[in-house]
Amino acid sequence: MTVSPIQTDVAIIGAGPTALFAAFECNMLKLRCVLIDALDSIGGQCAALYPEKPIYDIPAHPAIEGADLIAKLEAQIAPFDVPRLLGQRVEKLAGRRGDFTLVTSTGQTIQARAVIIAAGAGAFGPNRPPLSGLDAYEKSGAVQYYVRKRADFTGKRIVVAGGGDSALDWALSLSEIAETVYLLHRRPRFRGAPETLARIDAQVAAGRIEKVVPYQLHALHGEGGNLHAVEVATLEGETRRLEADTLLPFYGLSTDLGPIATWNLDSHRNVIPVTPSTMETSLSGTFAIGDVATYPGKLKLILQGFSEGAMAAHAIHPIVHPDTALHFEYSTSKGVPTGA
């Protein structure tokens, strides 16, 4: 069965928060667009990794959970009925400024005048600890790398492994509902903001969190995928057994640009250099925004990704509408177009 090519003005690779806002900005400028993402749902890392984790640096929201932010961004583009190609990644990109052809892993072809790469850190997955029998515990949910439903951990005995922000934040959050929280790290010192470390110490003093340092993961004990205990060890070989139902290892993500790295555009260490005023990459007609983009002074904040999406959309307008001058108008006077 032959799948008909999709014709659009802008192909947006990614469907995270930055991509969703870029779709809004494109449609505000009457640029048709389509969202393409390897995940089977929108939201990117924001939805996949921390849907219930509060985000504190989104303007006008003192705190908003990742899933709620995605829902509001989706509502914002709802009037435009933006097509979404989910569960497939872009394998090939060919063409030139004004005339690109993209082919996805399902064989879908997209013909676009311009391309916005909003792929976050690229394909991502957790750094898994090298433990025997890990697969069985992952399948049963006894070992998890992301907290999708905080309530699932009510009354559980939890080992949180790691020394960074994710480990600290989730240890604090889960200590409010879990029976026991062990915070495991190979060094006595943790990497976190002074306020966060002070809150950890307060929960330790209250008996809600127990620090287990300096230890690292050594073995898992249980049967049939049910975890009974986590064995930890010091560098000197001293071991300790922690009775636990769940292990949450927060050792960061392994990231990979995947096929993007083969598309004849400059990249360095899984990021793509861009011109800051337009967000254009070294391949004319393609643009990168969000975490995947880099330039002097870059801040990896969602709010900066929003700004980058707006700049990319404005830079794309003359590619799609070369004979139409863009008269910038505020949305308060322009309103939301009824169609792109």
Rank of each mutant, 00 (worst) to 15 (best):
G222N: 03
D40M: 03
N226V: 15
V34K: 10
A325L: 06
P130D: 00
T196Q: 04
I177Q: 00
F124N: 07
Y137V: 13
T106H: 10
L183G: 14
D40W: 15
Q216I: 06
K53S: 10
E176K: 03
S254V: 12
G339V: 06
T332C: 06
Q108M: 04
S105C: 08
T101M: 05
M311W: 13
R128A: 09
G120K: 13
R208E: 05
Q203Y: 12
G164M: 03
S333E: 07
T294F: 12
G66R: 06
E210F: 13
F153Q: 08
L20V: 07
A60Q: 07
R208A: 08
D99N: 05
I36D: 10
G120V: 14
L217V: 13
L35E: 00
H268Q: 12
S267T: 09
E308Q: 08
Q45G: 11
V336Y: 00
E243C: 14
L174E: 04
Y295N: 01
P79I: 01
I302N: 02
E195Q: 05
L257P: 12
G133M: 05
A198M: 05
R89S: 09
S166M: 05
R187A: 10
A193G: 03
L131S: 13
R96V: 15
E238H: 14
S282R: 01
A288H: 07
L86H: 12
G14D: 01
S331K: 09
N264A: 09
P318G: 05
H268A: 09
A119W: 01
E176S: 09
P54C: 06
L73I: 07
A171M: 10
Q7N: 07
F21Y: 13
G155L: 02
E74Y: 01
A38Q: 11
Y330T: 13
D323N: 14
Y215I: 01
I289N: 08
G164K: 15
A23E: 02
S140L: 03
S173G: 02
V147Q: 09
A48H: 14
R113V: 08
A193C: 01
I316F: 10
A71R: 15
R32S: 12
H221P: 06
R96M: 03
L172S: 10
T338V: 02
I117Q: 12
Q216C: 09
G87M: 01
P318L: 00
R269E: 13
D201E: 14
I12W: 10
F306S: 04
D135K: 04
E176F: 08
G297E: 02
G237H: 14
S41A: 03
G164D: 02
V271T: 14
V232H: 10
Y145F: 15
R84A: 01
Q111A: 05
L248I: 06
L39P: 03
L73W: 02
L183N: 14
R269Y: 04
A219G: 05
A121K: 15
H314P: 08
A198K: 14
G222Y: 10
